[in-house]
Design a protein around this nucleic acid. Structure first.
Ligand code: MN
Length: 412
DNA sequence: TGCAGCTGCCAC
DNA sequence: AAACGTGGCAGCTGCA
């Protein structure tokens, strides 16, 4: 459901802030290019060499370029603000035609075969792409997700798989130092630096930055997460150096450090690439298949692209499979086996959002943990055990959700 | 008028 | 932009 009150307030505030920036005209990349580079000559004044766009070889006006021009002139910063506000505003405005119904509920178009990896995709509107970070408008935090609410006497329940793709990498590579972190049954890790039951990305951050676990900031954790997934999926040193704001050499060192720390991950990646070359396709553990015929292309860039896609598919595809198994098992239990009114609302790749009758919240949460944090989740599909953990949050609005700390019952 | 491509940016 | 991958969408340009 959409909360029209919050909705209107957000639109008005964002419009106001946009106006206050005093940038009257629309700012498409061509205009920004003309203003910043042709008129103000910022590309020459900043003393740095800027970048050209992929196809047109025009001077890029991307966020990273404009960010680096902020010290030379105030305009790039304002343009960036304007872009963010425009995006949020147009997202909210785009919802209007979809909520013209008495319940003010959204019914997007879900594509079962929308992604090559087996992920779902979603459009009109795309509820998998709703902005998550809040923005500051007039000293107030605006979280776009706050416009999405549960109906009266119902609560939203978010179930998120904790770092599922890294768990999959750990499992498929059998890298001990990663597996041990994720193994529920285990009480002590063989690696003294890593303790069980902790967040993996926070833990890796403490290792690499050398600060205590509790002092790792959310942004530092996010940076680590981007780096880990980036390296696994084949990021280059130049791109990584921009993300980490370090020199390309330092970025290369961190890539090397990762593959040295987790050598079996590197072996796993190379294995997937080998299989892709041999068969022209790769498969996930649950037997989803992706053909990558361009792996034999004459162009080396094209071949390496196919190799990165292959590695990504084996991991992201399995994550998609697992999430589908989870949705099927949960929904069957809710509707057929228990008669709960819990309804699936949205799937955001590794997160499932339910709408739960207030009185049925505890029953629903019990079932979620029982089914998902269960070694038998994949029983009947494969003979392996892939330990998963979920993070569960509840709230009346998608923008304000509270984590549930749940004591697992012992299961065998 | 419609469609495809490009740039840029949000999500996971 | 770049040796991360998977998507959708806005606003634009250029072609038919
Ligand atoms: Mn997750």
């Amino acid at each position: 459901m959409t909360s029209v009150n919050v909705f209107i307030v957000f639109i008005k505030k964002i419009e106001l802030k946009k106006t206050s920036l005093n940038i009257s005209k629309m700012l498409n990349p061509n205009m920004v290019r003309e203003i910043l580079f042709d008129w103000l000559q910022l590309d020459k004044k900043c003393g740095k060499s800027l970048y050209l766009t992929q196809k047109q070889r025009a001077k890029s006006t991307s966020e990273q370029v404009l960010e680096s021009l902020k010290s030379t002139h105030p305009l790039p910063g304002l343009i960036l603000q304007h872009r963010k506000l425009s995006k949020l505003l147009s997202f909210l405005q785009s919802l209007i035609p979809f909520i013209i119904n008495p319940q003010k509920r959204l019914y997007p178009c879900w594509q079962q075969t929308g992604a090559a990896t087996g992920r779902l995709s979603c459009n009109s509107p795309n509820l998998q792409g709703v902005p998550k970070k809040s923005i500051q408008v007039e000293g107030e935090d605006i979280n776009i997700r706050s416009v999405f609410t549960s109906r009266k006497n119902y609560t939203l329940l978010s179930v998120d798989f904790r770092s599922i793709e890294l768990r999959i990498v750990a499992f498929l590579s059998q890298e001990e130092s990663l597996c041990s972190v994720f193994n529920r049954k285990q009480t002590e890790s063989e690696i003294p630096e890593i303790q069980n039951g902790r967040d993996i990305f926070t833990e890796l951050t403490t290792r690499w930055i050398g600060i205590p676990y509790d002092t790792v900031s959310i942004t530092d954790r996010e940076t680590t997460k981007r780096m880990v997934y980036g390296v696994i999926y084949g990021i280059g040193r130049d791109k990584l150096s921009e993300y980490l704001m370090v020199t390309p050499q330092e970025a290369q060192d961190r890539i090397d450090n990762f593959t040295n720390t987790f050598p079996k991950v590197k072996l796993f990646m190379n294995n997937v690439k080998k299989i892709c070359h041999k068969y022209g396709y790769v498969t996930t553990l649950l037997r989803r298949k992706r053909f990558l015929p361009h792996v034999t292309a004459g162009n080396i860039q094209t071949r390496m692209y196919a190799e990165r896609q292959a590695v990504n598919f084996v991991v992201q595809g399995l994550a998609a499979d697992l999430c589908k198994v989870a949705m099927i098992k949960l929904c069957n239990r809710f509707s057929i086996e228990t008669g709960l009114n819990t309804k699936l609302l949205v799937q955001i790749h590794d997160e499932i959002l339910f709408e739960v009758a207030d009185q049925q919240l505890q029953d629903t949460v019990d079932i979620v943990y029982e089914i998902l944090e269960n070694d038998r989740l994949l029983e009947g599909f494969v003979d392996f055990i892939l330990p998963l953990e979920v993070k569960v949050l509840t709230g009346k609005s998608w923008g304000i959700m509270q984590e549930i700390v749940y004591k697992r019952k012992e299961m065998d």
